[in-house]
Simulated assay, not measured.
Amino acid sequence: MRRRRLLAGAIGAASGIALGPVPSRADGPALRAEGWQAVPAPGSTPAAQLRRIAAAGPDLAWAVGEEGLAGPSRGRGLGMLWDGGAWTKTDLTHLNHTRLTDVAGVCAGAAWSVAQPAGNGSPLLRWDGSTWREATFPGLGEPGVRLSAVAVGSDRQVWVCGTRGDAVRLLHGDGRRWRWLDPLPVTGANLYRIVVTAPGELWVCGDRSTGGGWSGLVARWDGAWTVLPPIAGLRLSTADVHAAGPDDVWAVGTEAGVGGPPGRPGNPSLSHWDGTAWTRLEAGFVAGSLTGIAGDTQGRAAWISGWNHQDQSRSTYLRRDGDTWTAVRGPAGAAPAPYLNDVTPVPGTSGFWSAGMTSPAPAPPTEAYTERLDIGR
């Protein structure tokens, strides 16, 4: 079942159009500057946004999304490459995709993306050193096959979330040989993110139908599926998950609530699994969304990207302070009202990248946007 997706800029887009900007509360005590710096990502055609970002190291990163969203246009795929000094736009004129939805990579020879097609099929893309090229896999071209997320392990094994045969499954391979794994034992599920925690062990997240709405979904694959209890909420979707262990799992997302006028913003959702039950925590702001979560060099959840509807003058993050999360601000004046879709660590350093768009509405003149926290190598 496919429902209107409340992730990766969708809520920001709706609220930005219907409600307009909210006066800044720049001096609020809950938010403070934290060292994030805006990094230009030039070349995108408005309206544009980066949906996902992945780093192989300080001198190599990829960011993907969409551009050219104007009027009735469905847009086209957008790719950016970081070479250690600057972002450059990747030539994707050979592809016929309306967006690139996810990206993962551990080196130049092991980087992958998934895309949304303009027609039938669901592309799996491989980085060839200068651009993205379509790769073959079992099920390519079948009408019911859709790929939604991708991850690459340190062993270069590739894991893809997808749908085949009316069931949510994982596609696993090494770039040459592929196989579809057993279906996720949940009906009415959508998966938005896949994260590798160890060779052969990974976590997925998304949402699941509850009949009159949906709840947050988190599951683990280690040769068989383990599905955690639903994260209860009023139309709650999980955008990202971080697992330091089976009893230390963090999930972030957005709770759409009971409805309301068109464009009403949702509420950020922050939940922790202790091995027994989910606990919902306060995010530090009440209207907006949480979109991504990234771990530190010790594997602990460290940073969360988000969007605070009530203070749009800068980007918003949550930073881990011991056992609590503190809301912090991005750089001032870097964009009119930046919206972040993702955050990721930079291997070999204690730094991080985030990516999104220069305003919460993917309509002109919105452009691709990135920020970096450069803590050092």
Rank of each mutant, 00 (worst) to 15 (best):
G71Y: 10
S73D: 15
S73Y: 10
G75I: 07
G75M: 04
L78R: 05
L81D: 11
D83N: 15
D83C: 04
G84D: 02
G85D: 07
G85A: 06
W87Q: 00
T88C: 03
T88F: 01
T90M: 15
T90K: 10
D91Y: 11
T93F: 08
T93A: 15
H94F: 04
N96K: 02
N96Y: 06
N96R: 02
N96C: 00
N96H: 05
L100E: 09
L100T: 12
T101G: 12
D102V: 13
V103I: 15
V106H: 05
C107D: 04
A108T: 04
G109E: 01
G109P: 00
A110R: 00
A111S: 15
A111C: 11
S113D: 14
S113M: 14
V114A: 12
V114F: 12
G119F: 08
N120L: 13
G121R: 09
L124A: 07
L125S: 02
L125A: 04
R126K: 14
D128V: 10
G129Q: 13
S130L: 08
S130G: 14
S130D: 01
T131W: 03
W132T: 09
R133F: 08
A135P: 02
T136H: 11
T136N: 13
F137Q: 07
P138I: 00
G139A: 07
G139W: 09
G141I: 05
E142M: 10
E142P: 00
P143F: 06
G144V: 01
G144C: 06
V145M: 08
R146Q: 13
R146H: 12
L147Q: 09
V150N: 05
V150C: 11
A151Q: 02
V152M: 02
D155F: 03
R156M: 05
V158W: 07
G162E: 15
R164N: 02
A167C: 10
L171K: 10
L171G: 13
G173I: 10
D174G: 12
D174F: 09
G175D: 11
R176A: 03
R177L: 09
W180S: 04
L181I: 05
L181A: 12
D182P: 06
P183N: 11
V186C: 11
A189C: 07
L191D: 01
L191T: 12
L191K: 04
I194P: 07
T197H: 05
T197G: 02
A198T: 01
G200S: 02
G200K: 03
W203C: 03
C205I: 08
G206E: 07
G206C: 01
S209R: 15
G212K: 14
G212D: 06
G213T: 08
G213R: 11
W214D: 13
W214K: 05
W214E: 15
G216R: 14
